[in-house]
Design a protein around this nucleic acid. Structure first.
Lengths: 217, 217, 217, 217
DNA sequence: AATGAATGAGGCTTCATTCAT
DNA sequence: AATGAATGAAGCCTCATTCAT
């Protein structure tokens, strides 16, 4: 059990314990495979108390998503120092992202895998978080453009193009993170550097209009 | 129902019908939420027949993963013409990848979401496919380096640097495919172009030694 | 158990066994207090089979109501010989009614107590049956009036006066049936006689215009 | 909530609030479906207080039945003026009955539906009340007999015959009440008159020994 | 080659009730 | 006089799986 049982505690504390247990269980087993029994056990409380405080499995899952999403965006924002040059800011943001997700694998699994895998009450919650991160990156790109004395036109690119880049970045980051974790001799920092290398030049080219041109076929 | 019922058919055909139904159901509902009842219904057969041919839900899911993984890698290989220049080969491969995933959204959901979301019997199957794709990309990068007539020193870069790039590329592609599938108005070709733009310049820079350098902190 | 267990039987037979068990359980325990477990046990089957055939507790209860309502109205109609004089017809109908309810106390409890006690999906089912009985009695009263060679003026009494009498008669019958079921030493025939005595003179008086007049207050 | 919360109040007052809430909840939801949570909420107190004062759900329900039964019999007795002729007394009693039940639908539902629907601790409570009402009617019949200068023999009829009449009367009354409530153009008073018409002549005939004779079949 | 009949096990949820203050 | 914290027990329902034909 994750906590001493049967000790009276204020509601707020118990709720956090429940969310801790739920994030861990949902992250490892998946939404459907996770059982309320296991979550209650892990939280060190009886099932009815979980229902009293969190209402239903669906609500509990939603609460997990919200808490983890808030924690992640907060971590990324906290890692970035606004005064720095744009590339440095991106670097810091990526590092914060990697660090947070590495330290919260279950939370990240909840956000990235479970919430997206299970239908509509949940996916929307993640979309909101994702939009916040995309907005953050978009703004960084604009800053970078200004620094390079380029005209701000890139900011006018179709919204879904930027969203696509963000998707690609996140996908690459996840992939690298998993790879770094399972490949001896590769540190998290090196993985972040690889990603920066992969991404930064491409972003720069895009902003210069020097895009790779697909063949006309 | 997906097929005429009660008509005697050879086993191979029935199995494909079942796998079709299973891929669709698993892809849309998820592994746990999909019920053998629904799959059998959709396949137009009775449940015992599904068990007779495919043994168990786990085996059925595994069979789905294998079939879809084989179909995807085959599609990518078929899309690439070995004689072309490297960037063109990469482009063709990406196009084939995005086209196939766009035409098989349920199959892709099975591979990318469901199989990874549910523990160990399944994740390994996807890992195998992934490694095949990564190897393919790794080799393309090597070809590109040779074509650029650059001195071989870049090739001496730590092997895992190239491997990291390949990982990043594949991860980005996977993420973008899921995103393109669920975002209206984004075609397979656009997704491929977005990724090419994003990646190619970075690869070029790296091969020229113009890498982004992380701060020493 | 109410039946030999685990013997394969055609669906139609099993369904009747389940309905038998359900009527008995619902009638004795009440809708809420009856448990699907008990019903399945009494029917000699496992719970899932009950759900497979009858869908849900609500549907099962509805099916019980419908079956018992149909059986009751059929019994009343079967007891009446259309050629007889009206009082004799009424008597036969009442006898059939009280006999049937006495032989099916649980079914009658389901109709009279349980279905009316639990909200709207169910009450409507009983209302339909009730209306059929009321219509039957209404028509009998009209026949009686004609037989008495009385001038047609009574027939012109406000339609709802006749309807009110029919309602009162049916309501009295229902109440008496429940009472006869739970009072030892009261036979169906006695109950029918009591009601006939109670009602027939009143009906006669009314048809003669010798109505009791309420004080003007 | 039905009352201001957390205000210290004398026990007697709190108990009445709880009973009010309980009658309403039991009457609308039924005994089983009513939850102690809802009752406590509606009463504006915490659940432990309900248990402190009323002990258990069963005891609470019993207390409701007793209170409502007492209120109903009191209302009927209060409506009757002993000096009047018997028919007039019956009329007043019926009117009082109809009025009270119409104004206390939840209380009436508790007595008539819920208490009878749920087994033995409760049915007995209602039986007691019913016997009181039956005794009252019985005595009225005796008075009527005396007034008509008939010999009192009818009072010697088997007890359960009178009880049967009372049942029929109450059943008819209930039926008429429901019917009057749902049929436009029929007032409560008209319904009461219909019932008097229906009943009075029959009672008179019975007392004269002019009973309807069932065929010998 | 194919299916109608059947079930053990487990999951979500609710409820009456108590404890400690 | 009054309540926030907590739980054992039980109920409805679904599912993967098998048996007998």
């Amino acid at each position: 059990m994750g906590a001493v049982k049967n000790k009276r505690m204020p509601r707020a504390v118990r709720e956090q314990q429940m969310l801790d247990a739920a994030v861990r269980t949902f992250g490892q087993r998946g939404y459907r495979a996770a059982s309320m029994d296991e979550i209650a056990d892990l939280a060190g409380v009886s099932k009815p108390l979980v229902y009293l405080y969190l209402n239903s499995k669906e609500d509990l899952f939603t609460a997990c998503i919200r808490r983890e999403a808030a924690a992640l965006t907060a971590a990324v924002r906290a890692g970035v120092h606004p005064g720095l040059p744009a590339d440095r800011q991106l670097w810091e943001g990526l590092r914060a992202f990697f660090t947070h997700t590495a330290q919260n694998p279950d939370g990240w699994a909840v956000l990235h895998l479970q919430a997206r895998t299970h239908g509509e009450p949940f996916a929307a919650e993640v979309t909101a978080m994702r939009e916040e991160l995309v907005a953050f990156v978009t703004q960084l790109i604009a800053v970078a453009a200004r620094e390079a004395h380029r005209d701000p036109s890139p900011a006018e690119r179709a919204e879904h193009e930027v969203a696509g880049l963000a998707e690609a970045l996140v996908g690459a980051a996840e992939s690298l993170a998993a790879w770094a974790n399972t490949t001896p001799g590769v540190s998290a920092k090196q993985a972040a550097a690889t990603l920066m290398n992969f991404a930064w030049a491409g972003l720069g080219n895009l902003m210069d209009g020097r895009a790779w041109a697909p063949p006309k076929s």
